[in-house]
Design a protein around this nucleic acid. Structure first.
Length: 152
DNA sequence: GCCAACGTTGGC
DNA sequence: GCCAACGTTGGC
């Protein structure tokens, strides 16, 4: 079982929305590196940190788990969707999504606190210029973030 | 709102 | 294949 971190802007989709829906598809990833990880490496049962970006309280806010592996993201074919990609061929879809299920909220672990934690300085999240919306998390990093919540 | 960093696009 | 222009991300 692997660990991941998924970024989301809470104004668009938050951990609270995920809790309400219980299971949600993770649509709208339009970056090849992130897509390749979703397509090849994200497996049912993997655990996911939900991270809020571009907002007041930036950081890790909860946990989800993967319940369905990569399948075509249908929003790429919807001209009314912000995720529409006119260059994607329906016979060979360019973008995929996975489904995740809500597990729990966490006490906010801020980006600021992650940045100053030596045990976490190798997380792609805090590496210079990183903009990946989906990234792997090691077992040690996962445990350290959970520890930082003070809940475990 | 600003802007640094980075990915993508398209002309050549 | 190069690279300048452009668009996006995302913290501040």
């Amino acid at each position: 079982m692997a660990y991941w971190l998924f970024k989301t802007e809470p104004d668009t989709f938050s951990i609270d929305t995920l809790k309400q829906m219980n299971v949600a598809c993770w649509e709208g990833v339009r970056n090849y590196q992130a897509r390749n990880m979703m397509r090849d490496d994200v497996k049912v049962g993997d655990q996911v940190f939900i991270y809020h970006s571009s907002c007041k309280d930036i950081g890790v806010v909860g946990v989800a788990k993967v319940v369905r592996e990569a399948y075509p993201d249908h929003f790429q074919f919807d001209p009314d969707s912000p995720y529409f990609d006119p260059k994607s061929d329906p016979a060979n879809p360019r973008w995929v999504m996975v489904d995740i299920e809500y597990v729990r909220h966490l006490r906010l672990v801020t980006l600021k606190s992650i940045k100053v934690n030596d045990a976490l300085h190798e997380m792609p999240l805090v590496q210079r210029g990183n903009r990946l919306s989906i990234m792997p998390v090691t077992e040690q990093q996962w445990q350290e973030v959970l520890r930082m919540t003070g809940q475990f």
